[in-house]
Design a protein around this nucleic acid. Structure first.
Lengths: 266, 266
DNA sequence: CACATCATTTCTATATTAGAAATACTAATT
DNA sequence: AATTAGTATTTCTAATATAGAAATGATGTG
């Protein structure tokens, strides 16, 4: 045995994971059924979780996720230095594809660079940690826009001015919306000289277990080398880089929330 | 005994609570010392929490909060219908002070009304659920601005135009900043006819365990009745309303994160 | 290089938990 | 309004899972 695992704690988290979108409330009966445990046991777990503040009773026997988890989640988000997590992954990625790479967050308007790895080949791009990239004309930006809730996207489109960043022709709102649909569908976005004439880029998202976009990862370089074929060939290593970041954030044992029967027994 | 409490789960959450601001990483030794448990036990809890994804190992024996908690926190935040939680509290508050009350969130620019209770006395204010109130000239807005991180406040002040909403004279940026400092210090803000000439308001924040502002609660009414003395007398019931909301969000047992020795020792 | 510190494993006694059965609520149906 | 059905909740007890002592392994320091 590697290390004695505390079954109660595991079960407690299994119960918390039952609060999926679409099931805001949980009762002992449902938890017991879903996890194959006795209802008495499920009830006791819910009571214990209530004591810790992880769930809150909303009516007799019905529980909701509690704000203690919101607090913990925020602490986790703040303490996780995403830059540091992503940095080594970017370096490996750049070593593999032999082009520069970077990672981004979104500030509501632009994509913000949080880490980057420069390829051996010199490149004249001024992007560094903290740089804010126009959203509508960058691979990162389009990825973020594609993952935005409808209303927020509409608000963005209402306020942004889609002017061409270089000599290339400007994009219309309709064209952008259409492109974002396919970006969302494929989980992949491109930038073909839209921000800087001589720079192409591909970007993929790092996703949370629930499908929310955590950060973007891109590979970019001179248009001469970053042909469509080259970019296509980068996709696989980029996806695995994204998967590595996800693993670093969530830990090893945390398999996807498959729910249904159970998973761990004894 | 009310209900058998699962000690392991309680301990697991005690460990998670040890990740306070300033302590991003935790080791078995520290957890054991802080909670008065055996190091072996602490180690096993950390391993179990790692399995659930609640913490992630960053180096031998050192753990950080994991992204599973970020996900859970988001679910908790989304599933908690703050409006419904606050509504009954507002109604009680309004019944007590005999003036209208409302609760707000902040969308980055304005205070958004999420619930309200109208007093028996008729009032000609057009605020309803969803209404967005200018921040710099309302009690709610100023409360939110006062709780904003410095950089975000600076950005707000750079973009907003501080024009008077009615015949009253306009406020300067300096005056506003000064007022916000005292709002923050007192956890209390006023609006004396700044948005609508004949309406005064007082607002207090609902805070998270870690001090983050969750929502604002205000009482407002015609200037004739809402004298300074009256508003002062409303503060106590407003504070207790805020405390009630906090209790509803966090549950009963979740005492403030006092840390130090322990708390539960069966 | 040896020591000290801390992480990790092994082993076992015992405290804790899981479940059966009984009891208390609550709500739906007639 | 009364009966019933379906859950929630409590009580009690056996057996399991956990806590801790001691041993071992890793890591970094004087």
């Amino acid at each position: 045995m590697v290390s004695q695992i505390n079954g109660s704690v595991v079960k407690a988290f299994q119960i918390l994971q039952l609060f999926e979108p679409g099931r805001p409330e949980l009762t002992a009966a449902i938890a017991a059924e879903k996890l194959g445990m006795n209802m008495v046991t499920a009830h006791r777990f819910l009571r214990t979780l209530e004591l810790t503040g992880a769930v809150v009773a909303v009516s007799r026997g019905a529980y909701q996720l509690g704000f203690t988890l919101v607090d913990l989640g925020e602490r986790a988000a703040n303490q996780t230095n995403l830059s540091n997590v992503v940095q080594p992954v970017l370096e490996d990625l750049t070593a593999t594809v032999e082009e520069s790479s970077m990672a981004s967050l979104f500030d509501g308007e632009k994509a913000v660079c949080i880490a980057r790895a420069v390829a051996a080949r010199p490149l004249f791009v001024d992007v560094k940690k903290g740089s804010r990239l126009e959203a509508y004309c960058t691979a990162h930006g389009k990825l973020w826009l594609a993952h935005l809730p409808e209303d927020q996207l509409a608000r963005y489109l209402d306020t942004v001015e889609l002017r061409p960043m270089n000599s290339s022709r400007s994009i219309t709102r309709e064209e952008l919306v259409e492109e974002l649909a396919s970006v969302r569908a494929e989980g992949l976005s491109f930038n073909r000289g839209e921000r800087e004439a001589e720079i192409n880029a591909v970007a993929v998202p790092v996703l949370s277990r629930s499908g929310k976009m955590i950060c973007g990862i891109s590979v970019f370089g001179a248009t001469g080398r970053m042909t469509d074929a080259a970019m296509q060939s980068f996709i696989a290593p980029m996806r695995s880089a994204a998967a590595r970041v996800e693993a670093l954030l969530y830990g090893p044992g945390a398999a996807a929330t498959s729910s249904s029967e159970s998973g761990i027994d004894t």
